[in-house]
Design a protein around this nucleic acid. Structure first.
Lengths: 207, 207
DNA sequence: CGCGAACCTGAGCAAGCGCTTAGAGCGTGT
DNA sequence: ACACGCTCTAAGCGCTTGCTCAGGTTCGCG
């Protein structure tokens, strides 16, 4: 019926999570958190989806919150790496910004289940864990701001308010996780391309 | 210490909610839902904030979910009216789109507490209630799409993908509720102005 | 004054929550 | 052969949850 590897219609990149039972629990938690939200999800539901008893969860994770933290941590790491790869590739600022937006958006669409948890359940984290995640988000922000700043310096972009525009660009991309529907008519690829174009317009990139 | 009327630093527009005790409960619920989320909020917390016993809540509302529905309904009505007012005012499509975005964004920033509940707690609603709210959202979408469509017809805008761009514009505005911070450096007015400019760029409006 | 309606509280119920514990099953090293 | 460590379960503990209900207070109105 459902293999542990198949979620969101693609191979789930949870290979770093071992052993296999811990990964199954984590994937189940992602699905449950995305569907109902962290607080509305019970540990019994998570364990059930993973085909285990409720107690099995606590062999691999100390608390329900630790599960959320692990998910959030891995997701943020992945998203940040996507952006950094695009930012460090060669090409003009326009190329790099378009690349960054395209891959960032594609990730949020393809893996919207994960992204929803990663982006919208921050407040359910403990204080220390939230601080750690917020630091990752600031890095994300810095990467995009740098690209836009370089585009302005190079005369490629026309942006009166760099921090504000950075915020808007990231906000636009992140919100894809909220509305994207796999049953909808747009593929992640299409949304990525559309958004890259829109963002280039926002920064007044030369054609 | 805290009057019932003062929330978000402005006069709360909950005047349609009577009697006063029901309004106090509703305002308390908005605050609590915005802070912790619907599922993490207890009826005891809501009643406590309103200075009442837990049982008092059930004199004015049948369930906790009814409270959420009332909040969501009123909020969506208000947001939709803001957009319609801007859409029906005279002027070019650019003027109307800028107006719509500015007031819509300003509302999401000024009343981000309410907006957060309105925009991010849809899934906690019962099926019928959610259907009702989704219908309002479709209306919202239609208003913005109409403005953009008219701008394209008039030759004011250059938009290859009208539905996609509409989605992106609304998504951008709505997400303000998530990140806006009253303690931050930007006023709702400033964010509205910035966003109106960004959106005009997105639709390729003539300068 | 007295009556009824509207409003609110204290106490608490049934259900469900996160999490714990005792112990069973089983593959592995010696 | 056997003890060990790892994984998992059945049962359930203590607590909190949404919600109820019997009863008290307050008020407008005759």
């Amino acid at each position: 019926m459902s293999t542990a590897e198949e979620t969101d219609g693609e191979i789930a990149p949870w290979s770093e999570v071992t052993p296999e039972a811990a990964r199954r629990l984590l994937v189940a938690a992602v699905e449950a958190f995305a569907e109902r939200g962290y607080h509305a999800t019970t540990t019994r539901d998570i364990a059930g989806r993973a085909g285990m008893s409720p107690a099995a969860l606590y062999i691999h994770y100390k608390t329900k919150e630790e599960l959320l933290h692990r998910i959030s941590r891995i997701g943020h790491d992945r998203a940040l790496r996507l952006l950094e790869t695009a930012a460090d590739s060669g090409g003009t600022a326009s190329d790099r910004l378009a690349d960054a937006v395209r891959s960032f958006v594609r990730w949020h669409a393809e893996r919207h289940t994960t992204a929803r948890v990663v982006q919208y359940e921050l407040e359910a984290l403990s204080e220390e864990h939230r601080d750690e995640i917020v630091a990752l988000r600031r890095k994300t922000d810095a990467v995009v701001r740098r690209i836009i700043g370089e585009g302005v310096s190079a005369g490629e972009f026309d942006v009166p308010d760099v921090p504000g525009t950075t915020l808007a660009v990231l906000s636009l991309c992140i919100d894809v996780a909220r509305w994207f529907n796999a049953q909808g008519s747009r593929t992640p690829e299409e949304v990525g391309t559309l958004y890259a174009d829109l963002v280039l317009r926002m920064v007044g990139a030369q054609k």
